[in-house]
Design a protein around this nucleic acid. Sequence first.
DNA 1: TTTAGCACTCACCATACGGGAGTGCTAACA
DNA 2: TGTTAGCACTCCCGTATGGTGAGTGCTAAA
Lengths: 339, 339
Amino acid sequence: MLDERKRLVLRAIIDSYIETAEPVGSRTIARKHDLGVSPATIRNEMADLEETGYLQQPHVSAGRVPSDKGYRFYVDALIEPYVFPGVELRKLHEEMLNAQPSTERRIHEAARLLAFLTQSVSLIVAPSTDQLVFKHLQLVPLEDTGILVTIVLHPGIVKNRLIRTKRDYSPDQIFELSTALNQKLKGITYRELGPTIFTEVIRDYGEIGKALVELILQGLAEDKGEQIYASGTVNILNQPEFRDVDRAIALFEALEEKEHLLSLLGAAAKSSGVQVAIGTENVSAAMQACSLVTCTYYVGDDVVGTIGVIGPTRMDYARVMAAVDMVSHALSSLLTEEK
Amino acid sequence: MLDERKRLVLRAIIDSYIETAEPVGSRTIARKHDLGVSPATIRNEMADLEETGYLQQPHVSAGRVPSDKGYRFYVDALIEPYVFPGVELRKLHEEMLNAQPSTERRIHEAARLLAFLTQSVSLIVAPSTDQLVFKHLQLVPLEDTGILVTIVLHPGIVKNRLIRTKRDYSPDQIFELSTALNQKLKGITYRELGPTIFTEVIRDYGEIGKALVELILQGLAEDKGEQIYASGTVNILNQPEFRDVDRAIALFEALEEKEHLLSLLGAAAKSSGVQVAIGTENVSAAMQACSLVTCTYYVGDDVVGTIGVIGPTRMDYARVMAAVDMVSHALSSLLTEEK
DNA sequence: TTTAGCACTCACCATACGGGAGTGCTAACA
DNA sequence: TGTTAGCACTCCCGTATGGTGAGTGCTAAA
């Protein structure tokens, strides 16, 4: 394990590198942080740290740069908790609440806030429909052959689907079915609604019920998948590591691959608290130079989604972790309060 | 006016510059396009074209580059209609229809297709709620004090709003009001619904009606504004004129200013057909090096929105204009068919 | 174990220089 | 009068060159 002074040196180097994005030399450390030793001593420590894999040297006459292993140690053992000056949980909470009239928009707003706080790219996995609790289902017959299916899910999420039927149903039939379905579904999640529930409905409403229920199920299935949004993608270009346009393009393209991002964030969903994946800990090729900080959010006690931030491995971990933590808490309390 | 040969030279230069993004010299023109004259003659023509403002010279020993005036003449008088190989209106139409289950998503899909066809940034102004015709309004009482307002507008656009009331209304009251409001609103646009319509409702339903109607109106007002989406913004970075990251950032930021974009596209909405605004014809500072190609789209005979493409002034106008035209037609027919 | 001293490395910057693409001008030619 | 060949001139750009400075590793002394 690293002794006290090595830790101090490592932390000083990483702090400095995070701030300046320039390789850090022994002189700089000796000058800025008052360790009470000469540059030569620090050089020796740095050589040791390099040998044990915590630091790297871009070329022989440059300073040192943290390795992924170095960042890992920094995050696990050296980092000091960060407190955002003047930003409170309550404020965030209110900002989301006021800015936007619907739950979905508020989730987007959370992503926007997170991107703003971190000046990085934020990601947010929206609650996947199939683990939320039905609050209401309503079928509305329209004038033509259309039927509007409206579903309200627990934290105030509303989904609509226009479906077309070939057969002509009377408004009364539809309303009756609507009430029956609503009774069946209320209080359970999409995932729980097995075929048994519907066989009951079909038994009671015959062919008509069956045909409609099938259409509804089909409609629901189409957008029950998880959805992921990115916000603040432009911020990438302000990072010195992405001044090279080709690199930036590669990352932008990786961010378009929604499924891939989902699996990245999905990995984090299993653990609780703020998770950090550093550099090559991510499998994705375009993200080897990036780190990902994630945290799950809740409705009540149920995990319903994940938020995260992507930035260069040289990100301000303390700040980003604090931001992710805050926003996930604010979002959770917002969603939980929502009736 | 320009004589025939000057036109040929100008067109050759612009075509070449659009393709290569390099200043065009007299030799290149003489070699590629067989004008039957020597480079020296072309040089004379080029000098004339520069003097009359159609061309510019980055520096004395470079070739010529088109000026905004040159592009304008090119677009108005020289351009040849472009036909996309293997892309048909029908195909686009179907692609939008199949890809997405809701009208709003299909409009997004139109933007995506346009960005893909042009490899540029596409913009789309979604139909503003207040000029669309109400098809249905439904109030649904939820278990708690909430009421779900669902509105279906003519081309299949569905809006929801959860509102909370302090008073307790019985489900019957709400349904009754729902039916009454629906009767009043059906077939008219938001813009047309003056206070008179609601005074009738208020007269018939008293205080309860009044309070609810006010809440509904307020809810509607909040998202009646026009919305604008950009798609394919990453494509900017592939343009040689935006290899410079700072320029790219400036443009990205301009693209975030929704109101500003709206006013830009709004200007086009007054004329019919494909409109082109070249370089400094746009007032916006960050877009002086860009051109904007726009076209309105319809529901039936009513203009409901605008689509457009933003790219460097050195864009392939023929191709972009063709794409904008095609997509706007496909979108119009899609929305018009939608019952 | 720490530190001063020193030779060495190498990215970075400024300068210089030659090649090449392109121009404008002039004079001859149809 | 319009066209063209020839030519001198301009200026960007890529490459080579050398100096500077930041930073290192090693050695020897404290």
